[in-house]
Write a protein that binds this DNA or RNA. Sequence first.
DNA 1: CCTACCGATCGGTAGG
DNA 2: CCTACCGATCGGTAGG
Lengths: 193, 193
Amino acid sequence: MQTKTRKEQIYQVAGRLFSQRGYHATSMRDLASQLGMQGGSLYAHISGKEELLVEIVGQATDQFEAALNPLRAADLSPQQKLREAVRAHIRVVTDNLESATVFFHEWQHLSPEAYAKVVARRDVVEKFYRDLLEEGIDKGVFRQDLNVKLTAIMILSVSNWVYTWYREGGPLSAEQIADQYVDMLLPGLLVQQ
Amino acid sequence: MQTKTRKEQIYQVAGRLFSQRGYHATSMRDLASQLGMQGGSLYAHISGKEELLVEIVGQATDQFEAALNPLRAADLSPQQKLREAVRAHIRVVTDNLESATVFFHEWQHLSPEAYAKVVARRDVVEKFYRDLLEEGIDKGVFRQDLNVKLTAIMILSVSNWVYTWYREGGPLSAEQIADQYVDMLLPGLLVQQ
DNA sequence: CCTACCGATCGGTAGG
DNA sequence: CCTACCGATCGGTAGG
């Protein structure tokens, strides 16, 4: 296991600063000084400030996709698949709190091309939950009268919002948060027994 | 009904620009030009850039308090009170989409003193929901094993997150969104019949 | 509300 | 990775 390349170090410190102060409020000199170098020296490693934002937001999106995609074809009941999805989703948020914060807060400040790509990849995550809900409806597990789109947004709301309040060392693990959320949400989704 | 004062116009345009571009990415000259004046002229009306942020965030907080506080002592069942609270909460978000966006995105960039005040006022809103849940538990309506704090955060999550996706002219009104959310959430909160 | 300006700082580059 | 620098722009002020 090699130590981090200088480039990865730069991304990491940029993620921390962007999440704390915001993208536009972080100067390249702030970033450089935290890395023990001069402002201009950063450009030996990166092409510009926006590369940092593109990279951090891209890393976060990668993580969400890597966490959810394997569940698409998983052999689980809809209830169990929802539980595993929310667990994985919240774990991505809590394990990558800084890049998740940058992802949710700063992606609007990307250039139009990078912005469009992120929108498309966000839509994939939302579609994952819509497909999951529709699968559950087809199987007779979830209520037929669900508003699939709004329900997917509800699941995303609670899972994403974790980035605003979760702090390491808090009383609940990512799994515990997810399980308690799913326990509260499932009764409203399931058909009456 | 008097037309807006110049100061109110400045706050409004600042809210729009801050919500679109972010606080730090909006220059006082951008703002001035949208108002048909020169950059320096703004300072005849306001003390500085931060006054704008303080004012916009303060307006949003005022709205949340004004919407929820009257419900504290309302003579409603816990279920109905929850429904009215989420309706009012989401209505504040949808009716003030720009200042709500600034509130959720930019309040971290306030000076330490202004920041502390906003934190305190956010805690009041969260406490409103915790009190509501505890009242429902005491009355035997909500489950005794609810994690009150996490449940309050869940309600805040879905209600607040509306700012990220709601657009005027969409298929659902604030009331419809709120009602569908509450319909889905209540079964998980109520004691089994 | 304008003109003209202030010092400070910005992202980025040239040349080593 | 550093020194030294570029033009541009920042928030804000003085004086009218």
